[in-house]
Design a protein around this nucleic acid. Structure first.
Lengths: 138, 138
DNA sequence: CGTGTTATGATAAAAATTTGTCATAATCGA
DNA sequence: TCGATTATGACAAATTTTTATCATAACACG
């Protein structure tokens, strides 16, 4: 949270309760919410919070490098306050998105860079399947 | 091409010039076209081809397992007649999408499955960066 | 070749997220 | 605390891909 305030001030953005609230949710969840999920979570706390404000806050956070935008194959984005590049896994039954930790993935970028001749800037690794609890009901 | 006709007939779909034309383009390109790209390519050959027909053809192909739908982070899909699961790399300058061949990626799914407990059905691995020719102009 | 069924094409319409507008409110530095 | 500037909120509007409609055309089977 200290980071958010510092970053906002450094760039001349104002520190507002709304921005803090949005970032706070992102920082304290592992469920990679979309804009509508964020909005729903904020409603109880900030009944007057507007969708536009959520969008505008996220825009600022992206610019500050405080969140990353994920495209998990839905027609909307999800957001993650963990800006480290890391793979995600989505349950195709219940829709949840989780992180994947695997050392094997660390060397991947280098390897791909050598093979392709591209200068990599980014990667998005998504796995899809049934999560442990959903796979029981199949 | 023989596959397409066989598959269509097996499932009771009619063999039409439009379906053949759409599939033909997908089969003979490596650029992973989107619907609008397909439509543009078809225009010179089939001036009366409709966008709706492109969409409907792709729907059938997906059902037959003849194409895969890619989400490379745009707000539309791209299509690939190579239905093997394989990683893609996108140039963030010129927008082209290419395949990545790397043996390292083959074990990945198993590894992730073990780590996460998920039953994997699918994966989408996307790398982003500047392609060899675009990176010169930076 | 004829008939029943499915596909096509043109256009309208949906669908849903994201952006714009602008009056009002809040922030921040002096 | 004051004043200048920026942000918020409510809603309109844009954007754009994708689906639905339906009369006409084409296919496939006997």
């Amino acid at each position: 949270m200290i980071d958010l305030i510092k970053f906002l001030k450094e760039k001349g953005y104002k520190v507002t309760p709304q921005r803090i609230a949005v970032y706070d949710i992102l920082k304290n969840t592992k469920e990679h919410p979309s804009v509508d999920m964020l909005y729903s979570k904020l409603q109880p706390v900030y009944p007057t919070m507007s969708l536009a404000t959520v969008y505008k806050s996220l825009e600022v956070f992206k610019e500050l490098g405080l969140v990353q935008e994920l495209n998990v194959g839905e027609d909307k984005f999800r957001y993650d306050a963990n800006v480290n590049q890391h793979p995600h896994i989505t349950c195709i039954n219940c829709g949840k998105v989780e992180d994947v930790y695997d050392e094997m993935l660390f060397d991947l970028a280098d390897q791909v860079q050598k093979k392709t001749g591209y200068q990599l800037t980014n990667q998005q690794l998504y796995f899809f399947g049934y999560c442990p609890s959903c796979k029981l009901n199949h």
